[in-house]
Design a binder for these strands. Sequence first.
DNA 1: ACCTGAACACCGTTCAAGT
DNA 2: ACCTGAACACCGTTCAAGT
Lengths: 206, 206
Amino acid sequence: MGQQDEDMPSMRSSDGSATRSVRSDAKRNTDALLEAAMEVFATRGVDAPVREIAQKAGVGIGTVYRHFPQRADLIAAVFRREVDACADAAAALSASYGPADALAAWLLRYTDFIAAKRGLAPALHSGDPAYVSLHSYFKEKLLPVLRGLLDAAIEAGEVRDDIESMELLSAVANLCISAGKADGAVARRMVSLVVDGLRYGATDKS
Amino acid sequence: MGQQDEDMPSMRSSDGSATRSVRSDAKRNTDALLEAAMEVFATRGVDAPVREIAQKAGVGIGTVYRHFPQRADLIAAVFRREVDACADAAAALSASYGPADALAAWLLRYTDFIAAKRGLAPALHSGDPAYVSLHSYFKEKLLPVLRGLLDAAIEAGEVRDDIESMELLSAVANLCISAGKADGAVARRMVSLVVDGLRYGATDKS
DNA sequence: ACCTGAACACCGTTCAAGT
DNA sequence: ACCTGAACACCGTTCAAGT
């Protein structure tokens, strides 16, 4: 379902200027906006002034509202973007490490993501229609990734095989949320403990 | 540590009008403010306009800021007031029911309190200095109450004796927080399950 | 002492004017 | 089509003027 702006002759206007040029302009703006919003949300919280985000992205305030009519739309877009990044990180880790180490490394990456998103937890549980879809997006995107990593590690006999990936996904998230607001160090330690627990019951006890 | 404004002759000014009269005026205002704030917070959330609370309490906006310089101060005051009410509820329950039933009834009362305060959870975990003291207030006030009820029920052989009151206090709170935003019905069901679990392992198995 | 509300600052949101 | 920012509405906060 990606946008296929490429290779479409009909999109060129008669004067030779590409219609896409204005679209790429808009796309550059949304990208800059998402990037700026991510940084501002991280440092000043999700209630940060829209003006600050617009300024950081180098666009007018009106442009923010053109692309994201409500603040929640911008927040949701940033959230999806980071979910994607977290999901995508798995491939590189699988290529670089053995199954159990890749699983461990990804869980820490996932931990950092959750810890950074703690400010969003209340909004996600608020029932606000703008956020309800984020729950399923989160699960549909990350559960298969974790399942893949977990199955590979189980297959290799490097971790125990009596843990459900969904339970693990929820457990780690809950750990991170309740593990205080210490910049994620506590959360990482707790998760490492869980990972060691996974390794402890490995079928291959060599 | 209660205020003893009563029976203090030195507080009366020479003209016969009680100095206390202006104080009681102020006290009436703070009471009205706390009452109004509690209702407004419950219906419109803790971000509700201060003007609305002032209007509901029948005072000027300046009066709100005189008594509660920051919004957090008002929120904290409302929170303490409800913690007190929850703690105080135990005595009547103990007088009306047997030990295990009193414990069960109080845990549901506590559940309602937590469920109503879910909107505050993010603030409580934010590390905001205005809220840090609420954690200890919560624990110091409610833990002894629960311990008393639990010990009495254990003593009577009506519930199992291998549960720490602190763990129970936290567990029920976490249950309520994570039990969705369904108006508390889910939370009450989950807590009832826990209570049944407590009864299941009672020493007196008659 | 305490209360009040006009006044100020700030932020979300819109929309007429630009390109 | 898309971008801009002045303009408007709303809310938090202060403080000079009242009692």
